[in-house]
Amino acid sequence: MGGYFTELFTGAKSLLDGMWVTLKEFPRRPVTLNYPHESVKMYPRFRGHIELIGNQEGKSNCIVCSMCQRACPSGCISLAGVKPEGEKKKVLTKYILDFTTCSLCGSCVESCNFNALRFSNEYNLASTRKEDFIMDLLKRLEEQNQ
């Protein structure tokens, strides 16, 4: 019989404890952000999709060595370049990222020895069309230059 009442009272007390915890939270300020109106600042190391780094002239540092293409586990990078007359280095003419299969592992950025690739800070990627994620990074670089 003693156990009966002890159980009842310890049980009731544990319930009140729990209610006190939630009540204390009730008047506090919410910890969430009202997303479309406010958003968090991304960390500099955040891995968005990759983008090309422009040098002072706004051109890419890429010399079309294709290391990133080879390092990519999902084969989502395709690039092409030409060697203009009289120049030593190749110049990038096409850099397509197929973001649909990219897993943001960073292998490409790591493999680049010419400081040509970095992660962007873009996280708001949403679309109803697949084609939007086949990105032309050269075009993106041009847009950034403007």
Partner: peptide, 13 residues
């Protein structure tokens, strides 16, 4: 709204 406030979020806004 109550659920939100109990759960550290603002509820419908």
């Amino acid at each position: 709204k109550g659920a939100g406030l109990f759960q550290r979020r603002p509820g419908p806004m």
